[in-house]
Write a protein that binds this DNA or RNA. Structure first.
Lengths: 187, 187
DNA sequence: GAGTTCATGTAACCGGTTACATGATTAG
DNA sequence: CTAATCATGTAACCGGTTACATGAACTC
């Protein structure tokens, strides 16, 4: 079980997807876009080299499926060793700080006194619209997850991660409303 | 008013800080760590080159203050042209998506079925502790802001950005509690 | 005909982070 | 005696994003 350093989390995210079932590199990206997209996403520039290194370390295995007209499919699956690696990573504590992503909206609001309140209100309204659209996706996903077989041990965890986004976005929609009325009051 | 491209937001963040008053590069970092740290932070590797380019474009001006024992202080202030640039940026719409930062905690929770519930509960508890500490900072900052002169037009905007963090973190603390009890139920 | 989907992969670019270099003063 | 603070700046590293290359099949 060689250490991974560097692109570590990328590779663990790939390994995680492979616990669900065998995937091609292409599939992995598609899968992430449907499930983990709002907190984790990789692009091909990371996935293909990541898979190559996982293969080199024997944490995954490949089966090549011939196709014509398209490049051959390389279907990857997780090995026992890969499962151990994932398991070890899962139990490792994280020293990540609680820090938000760089947020351009907040940067503009923070310096809002340098322009008119209406402009800031406009930005917040735009943001609210996007939050509401995103919230719909979480609600749709929740509904879908609740319909699935209850004996799949993943469902519980997937509902929890979905709930994280749901709550966060709901509270931010309220922030938009309250901030707008606060700014309107003082015009 | 030359276009900035690239490191654009970094430079606008610097310009924004300079609307509050003249600052050295060193001060700007300190200032960001106290005020915008949870949604915007730059390091010297960006601030010093950023200031150099802003100076080249005449969006800021410098005054050098001799010091002995330390490098001379370069005190930057925003020019009229810089104010126009900032103002223009403030009114520009953003096409940022609503997307969270890559979140290692959620990645582990998402793949939680590959380990024991206790381990995931442990991670969530660790996270909760950090959220609570961060929330205290927001509450402290809010208290301080409310004590300031009410005629400073910045205060209102700073309270709003602070509130963003406050709400987000509060709702996530609840998520921690609810997720833990959900995971405990099924052990 | 143009654009999207499937499917692989590489190369270049670009920005953010860390480490290094310098060096006096003050606090523990 | 060590570490932190003030104060500037550069260089190297590293990872993430975008674009490119290839090419058949299918949809609009």
């Amino acid at each position: 079980m060689a250490s991974l350093s560097a692109k570590e989390n990328t590779m663990l995210a790939i390994l995680g997807i492979l616990t669900i079932g065998p995937h091609t590199g292409y599939d992995i990206k598609q899968h992430m876009e449907q499930s983990t997209q709002y907190f984790w996403k990789e692009n091909y520039g990371q996935i293909y080299p990541g898979l190559a290194e996982l293969l080199k370390n024997k944490d995954v295995a490949v089966r090549v499926q011939r196709q014509d007209g398209k490049p051959d499919k390389k279907i990857y699956s997780i090995t026992e060793q890969g499962k151990q690696l994932l398991n070890n990573w899962l139990s490792q504590p994280m020293e990540h700080m609680v820090m938000l992503k760089k947020n351009e909206l907040l940067l503009k609001v923070f310096f809002g006194s340098n322009t008119s309140a209406d402009i800031i209100i406009g930005h917040i309204l735009d943001h609210k619209k996007k939050l509401e659209e995103a919230l719909q996706i979480f609600l749709g996903l929740e509904e879908w997850l609740l319909k699935q077989e209850t004996d799949d041990p993943n469902i519980k965890y997937w509902l929890i991660t979905n709930d994280y986004g749901k709550r966060q976005f709901s509270s931010l929609i309220h922030w938009c409303d309250d901030s707008i009325s606060l700014l309107n009051k003082s015009i």
